[in-house]
Design a protein around this nucleic acid. Structure first.
Lengths: 209, 209
DNA sequence: CGCATTATGTTTACAGTGATAACATGTCGA
DNA sequence: TCGACATGTTATCACTGTAAACATAATGCG
């Protein structure tokens, strides 16, 4: 949505200034480039070029490249979270639903390799916990709720946190290793993962073997 | 292991035009830069500068930047594998030893953030399985042997592979999420991970709950 | 030994990048 | 109306990777 609207489409909507809504256009173009995956790295100038504006126009709307990237990160993260939420609904919730969110995570990464990579590397610290994701069925909160409902109560808050870490790390690791070409990219593997059951159990640290 | 012998010493063997062993010096300098973690991205020119040579001299020894990076990847991977092997020995092998290799993986990533990242992103496809790591106690082979000895025989070859994927993804995910600042970097978490017991169980895909 | 061939390093140059400063232009409020 | 302000442009800088032409050292062959 909203990618072909270079200059012709967007002229009218609000009384506009120069170029319609350049800020939004830049974000759209940026997301578009990242999703097309053509370039391994996003160039500020390329974004400007795409929108048909001079390179430095970008700086009227973003202090620097990192700021643009940051916003694109958030867009990507929202999209990812939505994909996960939808997968969860489609799977009917519960343990299967949770597994489906994991599968959706990996599939999103594979479908948007450049975006995903940049998103993860440039998301501001704690970005995934930001209030942008306060929506009930989105992101970290979804993960937390799932873990909470799927592990024994006695695990406690610490157990919930540990479960979150481990689950997230699991799908994130699979995603990254696949993206980087270190393990085969295979829908079968993803399916196997989805229908496997992970357990993380604390083992008291004993000196004896 | 060979970075002290080149950094500043180039005075003795390198009077003048020809630098003793430029190729090695470039690799050492590159590794040094990546390990210092100062720059988020390695610059070819910076490496050359470091060695005291003109920027384009690099091209006499490497076709392009990617080639240099590739070799640095391999160095890093070897070092990582050695760290894992050592951790395994220190832990006395067995299940604890295996857990220790995971901890070593994460700690190596945290100790060498730039190197680790670049290494993972630039390692050629299948690089971790390359013959450079044919040493008995190194890398993927170590992982495979560990998994094989720690899961039930009935799991079969497919089970071994799945276990390898899942274990690797687990530690890799934790490493990346910590590096990217998405989960807290904490030795406690690493320790908790090491003393937890992971189980991956295939669950037959049943329509019922 | 002498000299050509080859390996290695340098200079110069080019296209591309993110970024700053100075300038231009359109928009809107008093 | 008109000037302040927001927005976009041009010029420029420092940096990057890389190619081409050039310079020098090492090597080997007569």
């Amino acid at each position: 949505m909203s990618n072909n609207d270079n200059s012709v489409n967007m002229t009218a909507p609000s009384r506009g200034y120069h170029h319609g809504d350049l800020r939004a256009a830049l974000l759209d173009a940026g997301l578009d480039l990242l999703k097309s995956g053509s370039a391994e790295t996003l160039s500020l100038r390329e974004v400007a070029r795409r929108v048909g504006v001079s390179p430095t126009a970008v700086y009227r709307h973003f202090p620097d490249k990192a700021a643009l990237l940051k916003e694109l990160c958030i867009r990507g993260a929202l999209e990812l979270a939505q994909a996960q939420a939808q997968a969860m609904r489609a799977a009917g919730g519960g343990r299967k639903g949770f597994a489906a969110t994991g599968g959706a995570y990996i599939r999103y990464a594979l479908a948007n390799p450049v975006l995903f990579r940049i998103m993860m590397a440039n998301m501001p610290p704690g970005g995934f916990f930001s209030s942008d994701f306060s929506d009930d069925q989105v992101g970290i909160k979804m993960l937390r709720d799932n873990i909470k409902s799927l592990i024994p109560d006695k695990a406690g808050e610490e157990g919930v946190l540990f479960g979150m870490l481990m689950s997230w790390a699991q799908v994130h690791g699979l995603s990254m290793l696949m993206l980087d070409g270190h393990i085969p990219v295979s829908e079968d593997t993803i399916k196997a993962f989805e229908s496997s059951r992970l357990e993380f159990r604390f083992v008291p640290d004993q000196p004896s073997e």
